[in-house]
Design a protein around this nucleic acid. Sequence first.
RNA 1: GGCGGC
DNA 2: GCCGCCAACATA
Length: 477
Amino acid sequence: MNFVARKRRILVDTGFTEYEMGLYSNDLQMYTTPPEIKITLREFEEQALERVKVYRIIEQTSAKGITKLSEEWRKAILDEIKAQGLKTFVKVFTGTGLGKTEADYEGRRRDHITHFICRLTYSRTEELRRWFMTQEMDLFRLRWHYLSSEGRQAFLKSNNLSYTSISEEEMSRLLTLSNGLVDSTKEYYKVPFTEVFDLISRRRIFLHKGFGYITSQDIISVIATQFRSFMSKQMMLCSNLYSRIIEDERLKAILGNLNTVYTGKNYTVGSGNAHEIDIKQLGTIARRAFPPCMLSLYSTLTNQNHLKHFGRLQLILFLKGIGVKMEDALYLYRSEFTKKMEPDKFDKEHSYNIRHSYGKEGKRTNYTPYACMKVINLNGGGAGETHGCPFKTFEANQLNKFLADNISNPEPGEVREIIDLAKNKHYQICCTKYFQTKNPGVKLNSIIEHPNQYFELSYSDRNSTSKTEDKKSVASS
RNA sequence: GGCGGC
DNA sequence: GCCGCCAACATA
Ligand code: SF4
């Protein structure tokens, strides 16, 4: 009777229509069609929050130093998803593709719905869109790995990706034509060569009559490119939709809640953490408590007496965030710049922008200092540029020198560890490690997510450990 | 640095 | 050549 009941439930009780059965025929999809949402608001919120948890797990696992897309990476992510009790997701994420049980369909529908809710909520700003896209792309590639050969074929077909897997006889022709470039032990797909440019530049790809022949391992990179470009277009449409839909009060409460969970954003620079900064001691403070990205800007400002556009911005917003008064910031920039520039030229070219950054001109917006994500994405490596995150932009020897100059008593191997983290592109972990070697007394409960957070932590540490010095100077005066 | 005005 | 304006989240 169980058997009968279950069988009926597939068709009747769960209410999967024929249309939905088609829509949810595969564990992986490109989310081209919006779902019909027939669930309660409470379920809506719960399920979407679960997907956000998945995003955070992916992000944090990648940040831990585990190389993306490796076996270890997949295992770590899935284990954590299980540990947080998100079993339904594990099933659909690791599915081989074409399962037909009720649970299969249920999982895919949940995947579908939660994806669209998140797509909507994370479409709001540029920053959120970027973050959402990278998590979704990683998730997509993770899931592709578990699809069976049949599942992959079906996926390609249902998304009109005309990459056909090649036949036996075609294969034997290719073997002779390709001069050893095609390996007979692997499975190959035929792809229009216009879609494989990025792959061609990285690997040797056999091209023939307008087609590239790609292994089944490499095909994911082609698909991912398609998926990404499709998604980024969709995100733009969503951001329009968002502004209209958000007027529903009930939805507003839920959607708002969702993206506050966005990890990079939980450090907010408020008026609460503004310090009295003595501008004449800024050099000492910088060496002691500035994060590398800001210290590096500060030193080129004072050594070269010049900063390029984004460097000026990155630094000025940071300074504003730690509590430097606008007059002091203006004074600092002017006194350095005018060592190599006529004072009136400085006034014409820069003073307005500084006031504007402090919210004193035009629209009078108090712009928020850049978070690590933003700084890292600034990519400061260019000629004469010092902005961006040093762990990303510095060449190996440059980084070596920086670390030697700024870490006074390194434990053996510590510097090596920092360099390796930087090399593996784990900039924020790297920075956290750097922070810990400079401030062994401070216990961190999270990684560095914001330059101003870095400053607060190291500055307050010095304050508390040097209370005796402060008292002394008070007493002696 | 970008956009815009004269 | 002069100049202004903008980089951003509405949420407690
Ligand atoms: S990780 Fe963040 S705080 Fe550290 S140097 Fe890079 S941008 Fe600055």
